[in-house]
Simulated scan of single mutants.
Amino acid sequence: MRLFCLSLFAGLMLLAGPVARADGFDTANFDVFVDARTGTGQPVYWYSVGTLRAYPSGELLARVEGYDTSTSDRPEPGRPLARQFSRKIYVYRDPETNEVLRQRNGMTVEPVAYPYQFITYELVGDRLTTMVEQGTGARVQRIGPGDTMQARRIGDAHVFTAPLFLDFPAGGDRRYQAFENYDFFIQASGGASNPNQLSWVRYGDAPAWAGGGPAIMHLITWRIDRYEDVPATLRQYVEADAPLWRAPPTGIEDIRRLQAGQ
């Protein structure tokens, strides 16, 4: 499937100097973030619903539904380092009927579909640093290291904010440029029926079938711990059209196989 770039939980930030900051990380909130984001063994599904709207008119171009599913490991016990093995898919739906869009304005509508995304998280001083790998063969991209994620507390809830300013070559004279922001809200145990939540927004160009002009995508996301509990609207699409996306990659060997295009 053709990829329309959605860099969920990726980074393009440069390492800064080791100056302590009030919104920095320590081993405790590093563990809180990583365990919430990637789970502690079994696959997790960060399910999203939202909209794609033209800017500045606000015209509703499409509804959006999808998930990012992942598992992880800690390859070096005792070291604050985690590896996330992800697969993500997001479909566009008709604003009125909610049917999956397949054609619009004479063009094919492709989902946002990443067969894999490999992310490492490491605590370096009081920074959570990220490195992202995606793509296949000669087109494997390594993005990072990034370290601008902020850690805050609101009462007994953790809030993790990751702003991304994306600007990189996209073939020929084109560049991919967008702003994305992720706000994770991790509630204290017993504080919410679903303690793992995310609000995500992107400003950048819409896909060509939607006009290609400036647009804003906004998604509300929460973690689901069993595939069977993912809403049927998305499961039906995955099982019929994208069975690879039913589960995440199994580990680093699976990632390397996918990177090789196998």
Rank of each mutant, 00 (worst) to 15 (best):
N98D: 15
Y45E: 00
Q262F: 10
R226V: 12
E59R: 12
Q117A: 12
P249M: 06
I224W: 00
E122Q: 12
R102P: 02
T129I: 11
S72E: 06
Y237G: 03
E228K: 15
P195L: 05
Q141A: 10
D205V: 07
F9V: 11
G135I: 12
L123K: 03
I154Q: 02
L8E: 15
G66V: 05
W209I: 01
R235P: 11
Y203Q: 09
Y90N: 06
Y237H: 12
G204I: 07
L258P: 09
F168E: 09
D183A: 11
G137H: 03
D126H: 12
F118Q: 09
A82F: 04
R202V: 10
S193T: 07
Y90F: 14
R102E: 15
E180P: 14
Q84G: 12
Q262I: 02
V44L: 01
A62G: 02
E253V: 01
F85Q: 06
T120S: 13
A188C: 06
V140R: 12
P249N: 06
Y176G: 06
T136M: 01
Q187Y: 14
M131I: 12
G135H: 10
L166S: 14
L60E: 07
D68I: 11
R246M: 12
D31H: 10
A242F: 11
R74I: 10
S189P: 05
R102T: 14
S193F: 14
F160N: 11
A188G: 13
Y55T: 02
T71H: 12
F4W: 04
R102F: 10
F168R: 15
I143F: 03
D35Q: 11
A10I: 01
W46L: 03
Y47T: 06
R87V: 01
V238F: 08
A151L: 02
E76P: 05
Y121S: 03
L128T: 07
R256M: 13
D241M: 13
T221L: 09
V64T: 04
I216S: 04
D147Q: 13
L128G: 03
T136R: 05
R174L: 06
A242T: 01
D68M: 15
V100A: 14
Y121L: 08
Q236V: 12
L258F: 08
D68Y: 14
T129P: 07
D229R: 00
P248Q: 06
V230M: 09
E76W: 03
Y92R: 07
V100T: 09
V100H: 13
D73P: 03
Y55I: 04
G172E: 00
A215V: 02
R63S: 06
G204M: 10
N196Y: 15
Y203L: 11
L3R: 15
D167C: 09
A157H: 11
L14I: 02
L15A: 08
E253S: 15
D68Q: 13
A36Q: 03
S86W: 07
P195V: 05
A232F: 11
G144A: 03
R87P: 06
